[in-house]
Write a protein that binds this DNA or RNA. Sequence first.
DNA 1: TAAAAAATTGCAAACGATTGCATTTTATTC
DNA 2: GAATAAAATGCAATCGTTTGCAATTTTTTA
Lengths: 338, 338
Amino acid sequence: MTAETKLTLARLAELAGVSTSTASRALKDNPLIRKETRERIQALAIEHNFSINAAASRLRTQKTHVIAVILNLIDNTEQSTTDPFLLKLVGELNQALNAKGYELLLSNSFMASDDWANYFIRSQRADGILVIGQGKTTEKIDLAAKSGIPIVVWGDTKTKASYPIVGGNNFLGGYEATKYLLEQGAEQILFLGDSEHAEMRERLRGYQKAHAEFNIEPGVSHVGAIDITSKTAYQYMNQRIKANGLDFDGIVCVSDMVALGAIKALKERYVGIPSDVGIVGYDDIPLAELIHPSLTTIRQNTQQAAELMVDQLLCQFEGKPVNNQVVETSLIVRRSTK
Amino acid sequence: MTAETKLTLARLAELAGVSTSTASRALKDNPLIRKETRERIQALAIEHNFSINAAASRLRTQKTHVIAVILNLIDNTEQSTTDPFLLKLVGELNQALNAKGYELLLSNSFMASDDWANYFIRSQRADGILVIGQGKTTEKIDLAAKSGIPIVVWGDTKTKASYPIVGGNNFLGGYEATKYLLEQGAEQILFLGDSEHAEMRERLRGYQKAHAEFNIEPGVSHVGAIDITSKTAYQYMNQRIKANGLDFDGIVCVSDMVALGAIKALKERYVGIPSDVGIVGYDDIPLAELIHPSLTTIRQNTQQAAELMVDQLLCQFEGKPVNNQVVETSLIVRRSTK
DNA sequence: TAAAAAATTGCAAACGATTGCATTTTATTC
DNA sequence: GAATAAAATGCAATCGTTTGCAATTTTTTA
């Protein structure tokens, strides 16, 4: 069916009876070429199922129109493949990138070699890097940024950095989650999450601020330093209740997944939600409204997040100034709180 | 800091005092080059942070070492960004591909132009295509396959096709889910899912087979033709109960997401699970064991799925014969059934 | 120690598109 | 109708690697 000689731009030009330069320009609708000629060549290209060789084009133009998206996981957590929020963000990034004419090369921090700048940019695999998550240390990110490549990170916008960071308002989120519980009468609120992680630390600060405003001192043991998975949350809660009994009446979780783990533990012990313990999650994953009781949570606008990240990256391509960007955050009240 | 002249292979060779050919071979550990020379050049490359220009390499070798993964969504459903199962599969594919030295270019059927063979392969953007989902029509897939490019599809393995299909044993899955409910005494079992979709149709066949074995005739209205999202499941169940009352005592769902939607509707009407109605889901997403009651479901081994898909693709590169592959499927019994 | 064999290295031609500049064609002006 | 300006097209170098083959160096053999 096809075959013969491989269809290159040169061959297409030959078929059209023009030079490769003309063909090249015609295909990208360059007004240098007469309109009729352009249209004729474009039609011919479609007819013959022609498409430009990306490798050659990239080599020549030094542009790939590919962006590497790196899921920067926290080591030894299987957050990645499990966390719906992150994956949702990847999906949104795909949309946002495509809308701007870019493609998405997916990687995660375990796979990609350690020297991102080198591996992705200098090697012309991609034009820029979007990192999802700061991890526990920003070492690799800093290394990459230092070599001056275009890069944007999803994470805690209050971190000092030489690259733009896009993130939710974690302080506000933590604050509102906590405040809402306090308003509903909770007095002993647990904070579930790893405060070594920058974003979570901000949320913890919000938690503390809310307590301060209500003149309540959080119990000393009220911060549960756990991984971000539902499993560890479940285990932690089980153990905690076993040891201390029900010495709390509210929980602020750093993710909906964590909240789900906690809820499971509580339910198994017949703790009433929200009657005995009110719970607030974070992220508003699709399941938040499906579980019973539906989950009060802090929503982060992922679509906006993706668009902002892409914007900030494109700014770097164009040499425009970049800034940290804060994504909308809102409290979604459902049934897991009174 | 860096700069000077851009570091190319030629420049590196110059620094090492050898020709580019030697440098090229040395970097890929070609035994043609003396061992000491190889090591010297490799060390130099590391020292100078050198990495091969992928565009040039791809142009020359006609290999990209990139695989396009296409989320082939069902139109006007937002299954994609929502369905944890599909996203999990993407994650696993990423691992499996990386393990074989390939990278993953993510696309979805809304984005990618319609002519996949053209856009991805002929243009040298990727070496092969992995399609996740058959959609409602296999039109685009068939078109791509017809032009003889390497392609593997996740879907219903009983579909006749010119390309290898990897999928779960949907017939068995549907059968086991149903049989289990019947064994527990259910007599009026609903099937929730779109039977126009090939995979779901197979599951429905399994559902029918189980009924036949138990000499039970499923009620005429017992197949709810709904989209694969939890939202439509929720709406459907709500409406159905309103109209018909509780004229069933079991539900077989085509996904855990659908099951969650159904459970939500039932709970809101204080229907007991599993006392009044037993429910079986499909996929075993992480949340299945976190909700209350935890969800009995059919697990599909996603890791195996990813590996098989990649295998079948590599076979095509090597000209080896390919075959449809069936992934392990198992019933996970939890608390949503008696 | 010279010839033959084996081990290393280098030359130069691809791979296929893009683009500054030169050239040709067409339109405009006096 | 010749001179000039404007529009359209083509030439040829370039992007950075890879690799068949030729050339060189080293080792082995007689």
